[in-house]
Nucleic acid binder design. Structure first.
Lengths: 190, 190
DNA sequence: TTAAAATCTCGACCAGAGTCAATATTTGAA
DNA sequence: TTCAAATATTGACTCTGGTCGAGATTTTAA
């Protein structure tokens, strides 16, 4: 893991071969494969550590008095900025996290769960404030916001959204829409 | 392309090497790479044809009198069933479609655009029916439903949703939530 | 008709992910 | 202490995606 942190950080994920990793760690390549099932799983493990740190960051920045929409936007954008810090790196990670192979499902689930927890915490607070309907199943609702995050990332990687500002705007709009709904309301939301 | 359709269909994408493809097509491997920029792009081209067919299917099955929610569910589930017909195949395709490399962005955009069009068509109809707020930017709203689709697929590939029935239930709930919104309403929707 | 330029085709070659049988080390029972 | 069974380590090897320069083919224009 130390070798991974060094080399991935230095040359990036794609430009680091497993052999190089093994040499840097002073072990044989085969040994690596007896601890990780694939190169991607090393990446996942690497991110587990990084993400724990990012989550702490986010939680400390959350203004408890802000609206749910604002908090959600902060959460999504922080995560977005982290993951796209290095484009190729983020892509590989997202591919493996979002559509994992059987081989890496466990690790990927674990990382994802941590992320979903953040949503649920936020939503619980909002529900207590009355900002959110009481009858919602929060895991599902968490998934709902998670889906916006995936969408934004996909749009970014496909070039449909070009700048971080575009992403932020789109997310803002979608969060708003998610909260108020798409069908006509008799009363306008405040 | 003919060789691809045969071999991918027969042995699957992962088990078909580019060399095998070349041999089956009776051309050199290098020649393939002067028409496609990567193996994944062959997959994308392969799917362009398949998907056009699926879209026709879907549109013919849509009952014009059904509610937007029902139509949307049909659309998402049809697509879901198609893509997960072969798990590994779908995974590779989704990875490349959702988080494409610069190399394949064009192809992937093209395929995706066709898919998004379906959403927009549906939404336009709904807007005319008064089932949808007038002031919505439909591209964004289309993206909104697209995001639910991604989410469902991700949950399926991660094993958070295990059966197609789970997926359908979750999508149903989320579509409902998307339409009515998450914040409390004074009046219940009819 | 011809030959130079532009384009296309090819497969030997390279690099890197992942395998596996051989070897080294550790464990534990007598 | 001993040695056999269990476990861990290793790097040579395989397989495949992708590259590239050499050579074949087509186009163009005189």
């Amino acid at each position: 893991m130390k070798a991974a942190i060094n080399l991935f950080g230095e040359r990036g994920y794609e430009n680091t071969s497993v052999s190089a990793l093994a040499k840097a760690a002073g072990i044989g390549k085969g040994t690596i494969y007896s601890y990780f099932s694939s190169k991607n799983e090393i990446l996942l493990a690497f991110c587990e550590e990084e993400l724990a740190f990012v989550y702490k960051e986010i939680q400390s920045r959350l203004d408890p008095n802000a609206s749910l929409a604002d908090k959600m936007l902060l959460l999504l954008m922080s995560q977005f900025r982290f993951i796209t810090r290095n484009k190729a790196f983020g892509r590989t990670l997202l591919r493996e996290m979002t559509f994992p192979k059987e081989m890496t499902i466990d690790k990927s689930r674990k990382v994802e769960e941590k992320f979903l927890e953040l949503f649920v915490t936020l939503l619980q607070e909002a529900q207590q404030n009355g900002e959110l309907s009481q009858h919602l199943e929060l895991t599902i609702t968490g998934g709902h916001f998670y889906s916006l995050y995936l969408m934004a990332l996909s749009a970014w990687y496909s070039g449909r959204l070009l700048t971080k500002e575009d992403v932020q705007e789109t997310l803002e709009l979608m969060i708003e829409q998610t909260l108020t709904g798409l069908i006509p309301r008799e009363k306008n939301a405040s």
